[in-house]
Design a protein around this nucleic acid. Structure first.
Lengths: 166, 166
DNA sequence: TCATCGGGCGAAATAATATTGCGCCTGAGG
DNA sequence: CCTCAGGCGCAATATTATTTCGCCCGATGA
């Protein structure tokens, strides 16, 4: 099973750093119950082996003037791999698109977008997204409010799962 | 305009910390072109005033055994505020639900969920989500692959915008 | 059962970073 | 021109990160 190369201390480290990525190594070591040097070694190993992909400050979008958040459901005309890749590449190049997920079912892609205001988004929608090659239809939904936005993973679910197997 | 209380150095700091939340203050100061003490003071101010909401390690879901990611589109029977809030509270309590956004249009909520495997998600879907009070319908879409997943905001868009106004 | 070996831990020393204190400069307002 | 507030950076100090190294434990094999 994936993740089994990690012991409980490693998982504890991941959970703590997911919750507070700027915790000092001393504090982290204290929380997971080992001393600072091995704790730091574990963190470095987790980083190098890809369990930790990076660290990011969580910036308040509204405060910074990004008032609008939108989910866009996109259907394409062709689902040939080359066409899918081409669309993905376009998404990567659009700064207003923050996430692009390929889905199963009727909808081919869902995009999470941000914009400073509605008119900026509308311009993007009509001039770029809807107008893009191979795009059959786009349905958009404005985010009215966000009830939950937890970064990362539920480590408690993971622990529960592992304790069953063990 | 929102964000106008920030000068270019503040925005530069936010952009850098969004890209690498564990950068040392010395390195950050060097990049934004001031010395370490005022840089740290700015960071603290940004944290206290809420521009920076936190820092998080970005953990690899697949590596940790979360193979499945799903978007769930939920419609409710009642959209009275009390019922909306009740549903949001339920979402906050479900660990598999990582994000919950209220939308305009036909769909009332979109949820981003993760699970270790499909059967875990199916159990959650049938026993919890679909079965929950006031839920009229749930449409789910499995994420086949993720083409883009940029944390945070496009600071280049913000800068472009501000330079126009200025 | 007992020697050997590898891996991981932690104390201690050292290097780097964060944080505080303070004097200087600058620009706004009188 | 003077004064004051705000923000900077130097220098000193406190914390933290990182390296070094010896110890312990558990696995392996004679």
């Amino acid at each position: 099973m994936a993740g089994s190369k990690l012991d409980p201390i490693d998982r504890h480290i991941l959970a703590e750093l997911q919750a507070d990525g700027r915790m000092t190594n001393v504090e982290l070591a204290k929380r997971v119950g080992i001393s600072a040097p091995p704790c730091l070694r574990r963190v470095r190993t987790l980083e190098e082996s890809g369990y930790i992909k990076g660290y990011h400050a969580d910036v308040d979008a509204r405060e910074l003037g990004f008032e609008v958040q939108v989910f866009a459901m996109v259907r394409l005309q062709s689902q040939a791999e080359a066409d899918l890749s081409a669309f993905e590449a376009r998404c990567r190049a659009w700064p207003l698109v923050r996430e692009c997920h390929m889905l199963n079912g009727e909808i081919d892609f869902i995009l999470k977008c941000v914009a400073p205001d509605l008119s900026t988004f509308q311009s993007f929608l009509t001039a770029e997204l809807t107008a893009a090659d191979n795009v059959a239809s786009v349905k958009t939904s404005l985010v009215i409010r966000c009830a939950k936005d937890e970064p990362g993973l539920p480590f408690d679910v993971l622990e529960a799962r592992l304790s069953k197997t063990a």
